[in-house]
Amino acid sequence: MTDLLRPVHLAGTGAALPGEPIGNAAVEALVGPLPPEILDGLQVRTRHWIIDPATGEHRDSNSGLAHRAVCQALERAGVDAADVDLVVTATASPDYLLPPMATFLADRLGLRECATLEVRSGCAGFVEALDVARLYLERGLKRTAVVVGSETISPLLVPLFVGKDPQRIRMRDRMNPYNFGDGAGAVVLTAGQPGEAGGISGSALACVGGGRAPGMQLFGAGGTHAPLHQQLAAKLPQELRVDLVESGKHTPHVIAEGLRATLAAGGVAAEAVDLCVLPEGNAGYLTGELAAAGALTPEWLAVQPKIFENLALVGATGSAAVPLALDHAWVTGAVARDDVVALLAIETSKWKYGGTVLKWTA
């Protein structure tokens, strides 16, 4: 970092989860049971949904969750919403295809004029959005930014079970309701003065899926990949497809490459990291996949004891996973001032990773 660039500090975090936690017993009543070994492998005990599980009606919205997470982050940071001059959001499940959700969020914050950007992505989206905001603040183009990862995946699950006999639902269709949850996480970033120490030290972003089919794909939902009348005639108007076999094979290599690139971009050794936020990083199946792929690298072995995530409590939440875990780490005291924190998100949709290293300043 040169003297002309401003350090970017994380000033506060916030989170929003809709409704009360939904346990596995409640999901079993909706879609039927999973074999115990599969349920243990998922490791999700509770999740939150914006939908009413009995009717499928919406009780919240993506932009509503994002707004509540941002308001909490601003309050904790001691920053007034009027001081925000950049809003960057990441989501794969926006309220509408257009306008971007970031514009609705700025409106909810009472900002008549504000720069807004949106990253359409899943798990890696928040880290990508964070890096976009960092670049604006670092160069002095903006002063205060809010960055949000927010997902409402539960509406995509409704056609699988509402009005259906749980025992007649196929086993492969039961996986997603057990696995996915809704939620939003947010951070407030502020630009310091040139020459100040601390802040975000580097980021690494890459799509490494060239020549490889997506491991996760959302069909329908008004996309333009096929004629709309064909989409409407499909068995499910929206379908989230996850290739578990390919995920198990390829994810370890993406993690190893992403971790190595993130540490290099941040200029830190793995041993110097105090906390590594990696969604699903503590799942037993992941270590098994890494071992099977020969990807238990020295970097991984060094950071593994420091991995923090909250998958069991909130489920897989896409763009919201990293900021929800980061907020949980702060609230529970798992991270302290001046800690070196590495964020790493892996996305199977088209095999992406996003990583950031920062010194904790909140």
Rank of each mutant, 00 (worst) to 15 (best):
L263V: 12
A77Q: 11
R337Y: 13
I153D: 04
K350G: 00
G56K: 05
E239A: 10
E57P: 02
T89V: 15
L42F: 15
V314A: 11
A73Q: 12
P155G: 00
V84E: 08
P36Q: 13
E299I: 14
D131M: 10
L42A: 13
Q238W: 00
S201C: 12
P155D: 05
P298D: 03
E20C: 09
V31R: 00
G32N: 08
L240K: 01
A320R: 04
A15F: 02
P237W: 00
H48K: 02
G209L: 05
D338V: 11
G267E: 13
R68Y: 12
L218H: 05
A133D: 13
P159Q: 02
E151D: 09
V335P: 10
E257F: 00
L98Y: 07
V331W: 02
A11Q: 14
L4R: 12
H58Q: 12
A124W: 11
T356G: 02
Q167I: 04
P279T: 11
S154V: 10
A73G: 10
V187F: 06
L42W: 14
R260Q: 15
W49D: 10
K352E: 01
V44L: 09
V322E: 03
A325F: 12
V187Y: 05
V340R: 11
V147C: 09
P33F: 03
D83C: 01
